[in-house]
Simulated assay, not measured.
Amino acid sequence: MYITITPQKLGNNYSQSSADFVGYLEKENQDLEQGALPAGKAGMEHFYNQYDVEISADEVVKEIDGNGAKLKKTEPKFYSITVSPSKYELNRLQNNSEDLKRYTRELMKDYVASFNREINGRPISIDDIKYYAKIEHQRTFKGTDWQIRENQPFATKILQLKTEIRNIKEGRAEGNIKLLQNKIDRLEKEAPHQQDGKRIVQGMPKAGNQSHIHIIVSRKDASNTFSLSPGSKHKASEVQMHGKNVKRGFDRDQFFDRAEKTFDRTFVYQRNFAETYKARKDFIKNPKIYFASLMKLPTNERAIAFKIMKESGVPMLPSIPVTQAQLAMKVFNRLRRGVEVAIKSSSIGI
């Protein structure tokens, strides 16, 4: 499970409206209408919230934009939550769309519970937030994906050869076009990461089940009175405001942990060690502890964990060390480089 929480982007390219972001989330429906996506892949997906379905994009924009009272122009009006289940988690679902909608509604209860805030002396409830969600079924490879990065040396050589061919055709150079094209064909096949017999390139649609959830949640509560920011750096604390003790903060650790457990409980999912929130934290904070724990797993669970890690793009050891001391040293030296990239571009991220 890969979950991100990001604030509304502000700047020259983004207005104070949510229209740009909502329009971006409508791209799959637009592609379906234009016949740009394969028939039968997935039907139209509409916005929904805790109680309603088939909410229009116009209504989402109207509700989010109209719920930002007293926010400064430099403050985000909304936050974006992206929930990307792994292929193993998706395989557990019976009906992607309906099950993910059900999960969204439980997940947002976890979101609310992670605020250390009160409204009129009571804990925040699900009815105090204004959010809209949408399911997408397509993904494309990005420049940060590990497959693209590892294919890059081949892509660079192919581009150079194509430039040589173009120069020959346009009379700026001399050479054997057929020979150069044969080199290109060979490099295309030698690239380490292929999909359906083709070199994986940036922008290529990813194969398999790619269903994921986008959630747009207003920064202000449903009454347009109180600010609820999941971007708060305060996990759980109290501060004096106007002579009163006021609770503040959002506990991201609690949210991510609950989100994982809610999925497991809802769909009776048996989570492997490599998929757990605690393991992912250890991977980031202390790779030695992570791999030491990994080696203590039963053989079958360890094998699945290594498979998950490999698919996620985690830098792997060339072989399994004999001792824990060897393990710790190799892990530290191998993972110290590029661990942040692996986190950001794969499903192991937090």
Rank of each mutant, 00 (worst) to 15 (best):
Q16C: 02
A155E: 13
T276L: 11
D196W: 07
F256M: 09
N29E: 14
D58Y: 14
F291E: 03
G203F: 11
Y290W: 01
E170M: 05
E75F: 07
T74H: 08
V60P: 04
V22L: 10
F267I: 15
Q324H: 12
A36I: 07
T225R: 04
E63R: 15
E118D: 08
K261G: 06
N176Q: 01
L297C: 02
R172S: 12
M309H: 01
R139L: 10
D128H: 01
G203W: 10
L179R: 15
M329R: 13
R219Y: 01
R139N: 13
Y2S: 12
M1D: 01
E164Q: 13
H212Y: 06
E28K: 01
K142C: 04
V217T: 01
Y290D: 01
G175L: 07
V314Q: 04
R105F: 04
N224M: 08
D20N: 09
V341Y: 14
D257A: 08
N96V: 10
V239E: 13
D196S: 05
I343P: 03
E28S: 00
P321F: 15
E136A: 01
Y24C: 06
I3V: 08
Q50T: 10
H214D: 02
Y290Q: 01
Q16S: 05
E190H: 05
I129S: 06
K330M: 14
R248N: 14
D31C: 10
N182Q: 15
T225K: 06
E26I: 02
G66H: 03
A236H: 02
N116A: 04
E89L: 07
Q240C: 09
V60K: 07
M1H: 09
K235T: 13
E260Y: 14
A19L: 13
P123N: 06
D58H: 12
M295N: 11
R302M: 01
A173I: 08
K206E: 11
N272G: 06
L228M: 00
I119Q: 00
E59S: 10
G171M: 11
T262H: 03
Q50L: 10
F273A: 02
T104M: 03
S227T: 15
Q8Y: 03
K142S: 11
L32H: 05
K281I: 07
D110K: 12
L90G: 05
F267N: 14
I64D: 04
E136T: 02
I350A: 07
Y88K: 14
F47C: 05
D128Y: 00
Q50H: 13
V341A: 15
N286H: 01
A305S: 09
G231A: 02
G349K: 09
A113R: 04
D110C: 11
G43M: 00
P298S: 09
A42H: 14
I55D: 10
L90R: 14
